[in-house]
């Protein structure tokens, strides 16, 4: 998958316009109030490239906040089950930043770890991700600190990197990406593969947050019981914002919404920050306070997941930091924890 093409700047809009007319659904960043969010496109003029990152990560298009997984109806003393409508048209999501795309790569592992999650996988196979590299990270971005970069390719099918007047370097990374390129090849110029190294370095240099967090946090009993968790978590209010805006968080709750006639079983986003997340039916809660809950969040991302899957579960997008009502900052917390361990984390 080392093929690369160039896409001239003026061709981008034309390509998107033709995509819009195709049988594929085009989803791209658009303004919504003060935010930029991924939305189905009505006209190409609505698409904006004037954003550092979208408000919500792209995970919602594969793992929606709430979806029905089963319906049922009571019939006498029995129950009739029905599958929800699974039909889905093919989609292209344009403008996914490398951090979000890397999040998808992580979710791919999770949702295929225990059999195949057909709800996720169905959407994934019907979608082509056209990534868009970053040139100007935000003050809250720290993807380089977690082993990624503003031009990383993990999770994308095609990756566009802006190269100034020359247009975009187009990297083909998967078969799905290749398929799309082939269908719209007339927009893409073959030619020498320029290196995106310079662009990458320039973008990375603009990143104010730089730390060595990619090593993860090594778990020990001393660390687990350390009082630092109570300190950092004291101001946490236990809402679900950080988990919900995170490209990699994937915990969900299965609930029934039913009446006397039948009901729907839904899969809803859940957050380890909620106090009820680990409450048992007996009433006992093994994570009774915010300190243990926030510890769970941090260690899941920097310790447990890496142990199992070989990569951090944080992509450094910074959304949890900017959206947190009380400025919980996982970047700062990870450093503080490494400090406690005596591990070098400054770069």
């Amino acid at each position: 998958m080392m093929a690369c093409r160039m896409l001239r700047p003026e061709k981008l809009e034309e390509w998107l316009a033709e995509l819009l007319r195709s049988e594929r659904r085009l989803i791209a960043p658009q303004r919504q109030g003060e935010d930029v969010v991924f939305q189905p496109v009505q006209t190409v003029d609505d698409i904006t490239l004037d954003y550092i990152n979208t408000r919500w990560p792209v995970k919602a298009w594969f793992f929606p906040p709430s979806e029905p997984v089963l319906r049922y109806r009571y019939q006498g003393s029995g129950v009739e089950l029905e599958q929800p409508n699974m039909a889905l048209e093919p989609r292209v999501i344009f403008g996914v930043r490398p951090c979000d795309a890397a999040g998808l790569a992580i979710l791919d592992q999770v949702f295929n770890s225990d059999g195949e999650d057909e709800f996720y996988t169905r959407r994934r196979t019907m979608t082509t991700i056209v990534g868009l590299s970053c040139t100007h990270p935000a003050a809250s971005c720290f993807c380089t600190s977690v082993g990624l970069s503003p031009t990383a390719s993990a999770g994308s099918d095609l990756l566009l990197t802006p190269m100034g007047d020359a247009g975009y370097l187009v990297e083909t990374l998967t078969a799905r990406g290749e398929q799309l390129l082939w269908e719209y090849g007339h927009y893409f110029a073959a030619g020498e593969c320029r290196s995106k190294e310079a662009v990458t370095e320039a973008a990375e240099a603009r990143m104010s947050r730089q730390a060595a967090l990619a090593q993860g946090i090594e778990l020990s009993e001393r660390l687990f019981e350390h009082p630092i968790w109570a300190e950092v978590a004291r101001k946490c209010l236990g809402c679900g914002v950080c988990a919900y805006v995170c490209p990699t968080c994937h915990c969900f709750d299965i609930v029934d919404d039913s009446d006397a006639w039948g009901g729907v079983r839904c899969r809803n986003w859940d957050s380890c920050g909620f106090s009820l997340f680990t409450r048992h039916a007996s009433g006992h809660n093994p994570r009774p306070q915010q300190d243990s809950r926030y510890r769970q969040r941090v260690l899941h991302k920097f310790s447990y997941f890496p142990q199992r899957w070989g990569r951090l579960m944080c992509v450094g997008c910074g959304r949890c930091v900017t959206n947190c009502p009380v400025n919980m900052d996982i970047y700062a917390t990870a450093q503080a924890v490494l400090q406690v361990q005596g591990v070098k984390h400054e770069t």
Partner: peptide, 13 residues
């Protein structure tokens, strides 16, 4: 009975 809950006639998977 809620009309929106009326199931589509799809075989059980």
């Amino acid at each position: 009975p809620m009309p929106e809950r009326a199931p589509e006639r799809v075989t059980v998977k």
